[in-house]
Design a protein around this nucleic acid. Structure first.
Lengths: 248, 248
DNA sequence: TGTCTCACTTGATTTCGATCAAAGTTGTGA
DNA sequence: TCACAACTTTGATCGAAATCAAGTGAGACA
């Protein structure tokens, strides 16, 4: 999940085709080698389900490329996204062998996987990895709680602005803005997926995006390509504190 | 936070006047002794703030008695509770020295505290404690995500029923029901605190509690004392799956 | 080239919960 | 015993987002 700037939810997987920090800078190289030997890749098509809630899940994984969602569903079909997995995010829970959520690829998705048993064994022998995982989990918890404030108290417009700001921020750290210093990105989610994330309906998402466009807060090219002419302006719409928050 | 049956968010603190499991059953006794030497107690009155978001926080703690809330507040005063601390719950984050949320006592509250630095040192030397903390944090994350579904997708009535079910379940594990096998408990929160937890207004909370009472789902004695004549009936109102969920 | 589908937009109407307002209840302390 | 403060309930009205209902537009494929 990527609701904050300082998300560090990733596991090193050696030569994965993305640049990411190591599990722990202090790890010896033979530990990294162990990780290297354990890993394997899986690829999913857009729309494909990685795993269903309740299924046996005998691996943990790190997103290499693409985007996946974690969702919970009620019997009557109401669904709520509870996490968004972007490249370098981690999924899976040591000590539990059932998936707690539906995991779905929303774009073509490559994950770097580790079978759970040997991964857990290594965690036992390598305290750094466990500590790293704790740090990552605490970041996720903060992100989840930030999202609780959004779901419980923000207006539809604030919710959309917050989501756009998060995607923009996350994206900007990769390929920084365009030539005029504007932040530019493609929405990686359908209107429906956004609605499920924000606790809204897809119609409301559509209307609010149109409203932000009409008010000049964002520019839209096609349905997915977004330009933010003034990031400050967008941040004002989120309802959040202007400063970076308490996250050090 | 206590949204599930299997919450294990607590740290052993020796002779605290509550029965609770050890940090880790495998810990040697001299580790427990270390914990014992490090700990100290603090007590707060109902309504008192334990710590403000952003404040320096140089301790971690476990609730011994009473109830505390974790809340986030927007500049304009909208507030969302993001966690409820019941006896045996843990608060504080190793590796961060600022509080991320306001922590407030809603009843008279006793906490068993450990100064952060020595606690972290011990964590380094005692992998079990770190692993225990990871487990606890993952439980909290699950609880937070369960709450996201509630905030994003449930109706006011379902929200109230869910909160009552959680308190009933948690309470029932301590002092099991009354003579007729009904679940009986006292609401530990004001209507306003419930509203902040559920993303509602206090008026809506009041109305929905009245409605559940009118419909015979609960009985009320005074404003706080609740009797649940038929737990199944209450669970039906929550919108959740009837089975225990995926949490093993 | 057309048509089918999927994602999205927009409009009309409804509804649930928020807001505004006024009482009722309980406990505390003078 | 009274007064008042804090908490709660209930009523009337409003409004934001949901729902219901047509649409548009773009890509896929026959």
């Amino acid at each position: 999940m990527a609701l904050q700037e300082n998300v560090r939810t990733h596991i090193d997987c050696g030569d994965c085709p993305i640049r990411h920090r190591a599990v722990c800078a202090r790890c010896e190289s033979d530990e990294l080698k162990l990780l290297e030997e354990m890993k394997y890749y899986r690829t999913y098509e857009a729309g494909q389900t990685v795993i269903w809630s309740g299924d046996k899940m005998d691996f943990v994984a790190s997103v290499v490329e693409g985007i996946a969602t974690l969702t919970q569903t009620m019997e009557d079909g109401r669904t709520q996204m509870v996490g968004l997995l972007l490249p370098s995010d981690f999924v899976g829970r040591p000590g539990r062998d059932q998936a707690a959520y539906d995991v779905t690829a929303t774009t073509r998705l490559t994950m770097c996987c580790f079978r759970k048993k040997p991964f857990e064994d290594m965690m036992m022998n390598t305290p750094h990895i466990g500590q790293r995982l704790l740090e990552m989990t605490l970041d996720e918890l903060d992100a989840a709680r930030e999202w609780m404030l959004l779901l419980g108290r923000k207006t539809a417009r604030e919710k959309i602005a917050s989501l756009l700001a998060i995607i923009a921020r996350r994206d900007a750290t990769l390929k920084l803005s365009n030539s005029r210093g504007q932040v530019v990105f493609d929405l990686p989610l359908t209107r429906e997926a956004m609605a499920d994330y924000l606790g809204l309906t897809l119609e409301t998402v559509s209307r609010q995006i149109s409203a932000l466009k009409r008010d000049g807060v964002i520019e839209l090219e096609g349905k997915r390509h977004v330009t933010v002419p003034d990031m400050e302006r967008l941040l004002d719409e989120t309802g959040d504190d202007t400063d970076g928050g308490v996250f050090a």
